[in-house]
Design a protein around this nucleic acid. Structure first.
Ligand SMILES: [Zn+2]
Ligand SMILES: [Zn+2]
Ligand SMILES: [Zn+2]
Ligand SMILES: [Zn+2]
Lengths: 160, 160
DNA sequence: GTTGCGATGAAATAACGTAACATCTATATC
DNA sequence: GATATAGATGTTACGTTATTTCATCGCAAC
């Protein structure tokens, strides 16, 4: 496991790598990595935390890239559909993907104190849920796996 | 496993048992199982599907049990807080609990075609996510586990 | 050059959720 | 029984999240 996000790391490379990955994948898939889409991804990559669509929209507005909700939602839809970002259902908010290369079923660790969100791989959910689904004859197409709690940094000082 | 919901079963007993369970637990815990709370639980128990707060409110309104959003949300908060119902984050909606007796971390199978929602036990999420969290030093307090796909009934005719 | 398609701009509205405050009701205590 | 208390409800107003719809633009294919 390489659950970064809570660990100290070279965050500048997170951003650069994320944008580069997305750009490359769009090029090879014939997708348009437009200025708004790029900028939204950058905004998400700026921090390992979930941002609401309206938070993002506010930034776009300040920069003259758009002012109405659909601008943000459309860019986010694009990023999510193509695996460059994920929606955190628990928070009605979005994060940049941390594993853009591989096709994956994401799982998230959400710190309720500092708002950090770490993405963990969770190979096809082969655990209890997979068993239960198989036994019930249920075909899983998509999973939402989100754990809320305290990250190591916040667990020390306060919280728990 | 006893993932009902998709299976044919005596649904009348689901409702009766659910209400009885909630009533008993409220009595023994000194909680007030008021008419609105009871009715909202009944509404949820009426089908193994998620209902939005406003859908529920509409029913309450028709029956003269309340007309403003807080009425529905308060009853739902009560039911969720006390383990009689769960929120499906993916749908911003609510379902009655299927395992009211035990203290449990719920997981859900959501059919995108018919809207049925089955609840599966998922003992403290000791799978991949638990490992990842432990390794990262993250303390899990609450989990959201929701799988979306096709239930056995819907998988036959259409969908997939 | 025109046709077609995907991306944007913009207005309006829908859907989901909460804050705040007044009022009422059921106990518990005296 | 009167009174104090805590919890439940009624109501207004508002805040947040998300979508529908239609017009316009830019670019590439034909
Ligand atoms: Zn980083
Ligand atoms: Zn990811
Ligand atoms: Zn049933
Ligand atoms: Zn349950």
């Amino acid at each position: 496991m390489d659950t970064l996000a809570f660990d100290r790391h070279d965050h500048r490379s997170c951003i650069a790598a994320g944008v580069a990955q997305a750009e490359a994948q769009c090029a090879s898939a014939g997708l348009q990595f437009t200025p708004v889409r790029r900028r939204v991804l950058e905004i998400l990559l700026a921090g390992h935390r979930a941002m609401g669509a309206y938070d993002i929209l506010e930034v776009l507005r300040e920069e003259g890239l758009g002012s109405q909700p659909p601008v943000a939602y459309r860019a986010l839809d694009f990023l999510v559909s193509n695996g460059f970002a994920h929606k955190i259902e628990r928070l009605n908010a979005f994060v940049a993907c941390s594993h853009m290369t591989e096709d994956h079923a994401p799982a998230f660790l959400i710190c309720r104190a500092c708002g950090s969100v770490a993405e963990a791989e969770i190979r096809l959910e082969r655990g209890r849920l997979g068993e239960a689904a198989a036994q019930a004859g249920f075909t899983i197409e998509r999973t939402v796996v989100e754990a809320e709690g305290l990250c190591p940094n916040c667990a020390e000082g306060r919280g728990a």
